[in-house]
Design a protein around this nucleic acid. Structure first.
Lengths: 238, 238
DNA sequence: CTCAATCACTTGTGCGGACGAGTGGGAGAA
DNA sequence: TTCTCCCACTCGTCCGCACAAGTGATTGAG
C-alpha cells in the first residue's frame, strides 16, 4: 500500500492560483475571485481559502485590499541560487567506495580551533573521496566532536545513505542552522594529491556547521581540484 | 474620542514572543511553550496562537516540528554579508600606481563569449595590480565593450578616483544591476606570476556585470593569490 | 440635483471543535 | 534485561460560524 499523501488543501488552492497567474489566466492587476467564490469552486472552507490567499500575499504573488478584493501582482522574484559547497558535502549521500577512512584522532590545531575544543582533543575524522566518472574529484574530511558523534554512525566506516545532515537529525535531532565557509586556493597536500591523482592547485574549503544555539556540530575541510570545480554565484547589486 | 485601535491579537502574541526571544528569555534552541499553554497564557483561541506561530516560523524566528514542539531560532537575520570580489573590484578607487596598462585589444575567446561579442572584436582592457603593504596582492583586468567605454575615462590610463562603478554611472548613467561570478583555483599565468612575484596557486575570479536589461557592461578577471586571500561566507541552512 | 443612508459585497479577525499524524516515554510482556 | 505496545502530548489541517470593518453602488429624502 504505497498511498501517496495528498498535499494539504490550502496548498492545492495556492498551487492552482499560482498556475493560473503563470498561465496568464489571471493577469497582473486583475481581481481574483472572491473568497466566497473560491470556497465554492474548490469546495473547501473559507479558513482554507483565506490561508492560501494570505500565504500567497506574504510571498508576494497577490495583494489583498480590505473591502475590495485580492489582486494579482505576478510571480515574485526570488533571490538567485548560490553555490554552497560546505552544505552540499553534508547533504550528499555516501556510496560504498566513497568513505575511505574513519578514525578517532587528536584534533589538529586549526580544526580544534574551529570546533572550539582544546588542541589534541580526540575527535572523529571521516574522510571521503568523491568521484565523478570513476575519477576522484574531491577529497573531503568531516570532523566531529565526540559529543556529536556519540550514538550516531558517523564514527563507523559504513556509508551514510542519506547524508550526514539527515543522519544527525534523524538519530540525535541535531539540526543544522547556519554555515560559515572559508575558501582559498592552495596546492594540495601530498596526501590529497595522491588521492586525487594530480598535483594541480585546489580550492580549499573550510566550512563550520552550527546549530541554532551557535554550537559547532562539525567542521568540513575539502580540496576541490581547480580544473574540475568552478563555483558560480549570481547576486544583485544593491 | 481618539481611541487607538488595538492591534489584532495574533499580532500581540507574535510581538510578545519576539520580545522574549530578543530578551533572551527564550534562547535559541529552546522549546517554546506548547500551543495549548500559549492559549491559556494569552487567553485566546488556538487559531490565534497557531497563526502567530506559523507567521513567526515563516519569518524565521522559530521552527516548528510536528509532534515535538516549536523551537527558537533567534532574530531572523537579513542575508549575511557575503564576499563579492567581483563587485569589490568595480567599486574600488584606483590609485596612481595601480593602473599599469590600458589598451584596445582583440577580445580573447573566453572574454568575448562573456561580453557577448564576436571573438577578436576590439575591446578595452584595463589592467590593475592591487597592492597591500607595498607588495602586489592581486592582478585584475577589466574588459569593456567599446560602446560602454565610449565617452568615459575607462579607456584612459589615468586612475579613476571613485571607482569604475561610480564613474560609469556619473558620466553615462550606466547602472550595475547584478553580477555573475565564477570562481576556481588555478596556477597563475606567467604574466600574473611575474606581476605578483610568486608562482603560488591563485583564486581565479571571472565576474560579469550586467545592467537591469541583462546587457553586459563589463567583465572582470582577477588572480588572487591563495596565500593572501581567503573568501568568507556565512549562510543560513534552509 | 445633491447628499446621505442603506445594502450588498469584499476582506480581517476570532472562536471552538474536530480529527489526523508524529514523538517520546513509560508500562507491561517476553 | 530487552523489546513492544500504548498513551499522552505535540503540531497540522480543516470546518462552520460569527462579527467587524472597508468599499462602492443604489436608493430615497431633501
Amino acid at each position: 500500500m504505497s498511498m501517496d499523501f495528498a498535499p494539504p488543501k490550502y496548498a492545492q488552492v495556492m498551487k492552482a492560483i499560482q498556475q493560473r497567474i503563470e498561465a496568464g489566466e489571471y493577469a497582473p492587476g486583475d481581481m481574483l475571485p472572491s473568497e466566497t467564490q473560491l470556497v465554492r469552486e474548490f469546495a473547501v472552507g473559507r479558513t482554507t481559502v483565506v490561508r492560501a490567499l494570505q500565504t500567497l500575499a506574504m510571498q508576494g504573488w497577490i495583494e489583498r485590499e480590505h473591502g475590495r478584493g485580492s489582486f494579482v501582482k505576478g510571480r515574485p522574484d526570488s533571490p538567485p541560487d548560490r553555490v554552497r559547497p560546505g552544505l552540499a558535502v553534508a547533504e550528499q549521500a555516501e556510496s560504498t567506495e566513497s568513505v575511505t577512512e574513519v578514525e578517532r584522532v587528536a584534533a589538529p590545531r586549526h580544526i580544534a580551533r574551529l570546533l572550539g575544543v582544546a588542541e589534541r582533543t580526540p575527535v572523529i575524522a571521516r574522510r571521503r573521496v568523491a568521484k565523478q566518472g570513476g575519477r576522484p574529484s574531491a577529497v573531503e574530511t568531516l570532523w566531529f566532536p565526540l559529543e556529536v558523534a556519540l550514538g550516531t554512525d558517523v564514527d563507523k566506516p559504513g556509508p551514510l545513505r542519506h547524508g550526514v545532515r539527515q543522519h544527525l537529525q534523524a538519530v540525535k535531532h541535531l539540526r543544522f542552522d547556519h554555515v560559515t565557509e572559508r575558501l582559498t586556493a592552495r596546492n594540495p597536500t601530498k596526501e590529497e594529491a595522491e588521492l586525487l591523482g594530480s598535483p594541480k592547485p585546489v580550492l580549499g574549503v573550510l566550512a563550520t556547521v552550527h546549530d541554532a544555539a551557535g554550537s559547532v556540530l562539525l567542521v568540513m575541510s575539502a580540496a576541490l581540484p581547480g580544473d574540475l570545480h568552478e563555483l558560480q554565484d549570481v547576486y544583485q547589486v544593491s
